[in-house]
């Protein structure tokens, strides 16, 4: 019974937050609604016994990524009087409606068709209910998926370098003087 209450409350938080992100006029409100959704998902992670992921979700997503969003919003300045500008490009609203209808249709189709659940057998490391999930995650991450783990470090370095180059202000007088010297 408590499971059901937790699920329903967290799911309501998630969905209200998700709709809020889409319909909020002020980008700051969108970011705060995103925090709400992320907390709801963290609650779902706890309910599914992925405790470490729940902590990471709150720290990384709600703590770092949303703060970065808010930082950029404040940096660029908030235009409070913006309308809810929807679908400027031709056919964009139609595409959104089609995406929603098709997605919901597929969802309902799957819900009606799949009755006996997923029965295939796992291929990777089975979950041991006696050891904490963080230990199992570490073994999976550093044994089986260590190559992908190393690749993510490369990805992060590329992203950081790209962000630095993108957001650097061009200084024409410096470049000109350097060009003159060389």
């Amino acid at each position: 019974m408590i499971d059901l209450i937790v699920f329903l409350v967290a799911a309501a938080i998630c969905l209200v937050g998700a709709v809020g992100v889409v319909v909020a006029r002020n980008p700051v409100h969108s970011a705060l609604m995103l925090v709400m959704t992320l907390f709801g998902i963290a609650v779902h992670f706890v309910a599914q016994e992925a405790h470490f992921l729940a902590a990471v979700q709150v720290i990384v997503y709600a703590g770092a990524i949303v703060v970065m969003f808010l930082f950029v919003i404040m940096l660029l300045g908030v235009d409070v009087h913006t309308k809810l500008d929807l679908g400027g490009l031709k056919g964009q609203r139609v595409a959104a409606a089609a995406f929603g209808v098709v997605g919901l249709g597929v969802l309902v189709f799957l819900m009606t068709r799949v009755e006996d659940g997923i029965t295939s057998q796992p291929a990777g490391t089975p979950i041991d209910p006696n050891t904490p999930d963080i230990n199992q995650l570490a073994h999976s991450l550093f044994d089986q998926y260590v190559f992908a783990f190393e690749l993510t470090s490369v990805l992060l370095i590329i992203a950081v370098i790209g962000a630095v180059i993108l957001s650097r202000k061009p200084r024409p007088e410096l470049e000109e003087s350097q060009g003159g010297e060389s």
Binding site: L53, F69, I127, L155
Partner: peptide, 29 residues
């Protein structure tokens, strides 16, 4: 991950987190 009893599903969430962070950094730039 819970259904199949396989911890790999939770590992993939880690990689999704990393990709999301990288995407946000470059996108905001």
């Amino acid at each position: 991950s819970r259904i199949l009893g396989d911890v790999a599903g939770q590992t993939v969430v880690f990689f999704v987190l990393v990709v999301a962070a990288a995407e946000v950094v470059v996108g905001l730039g």
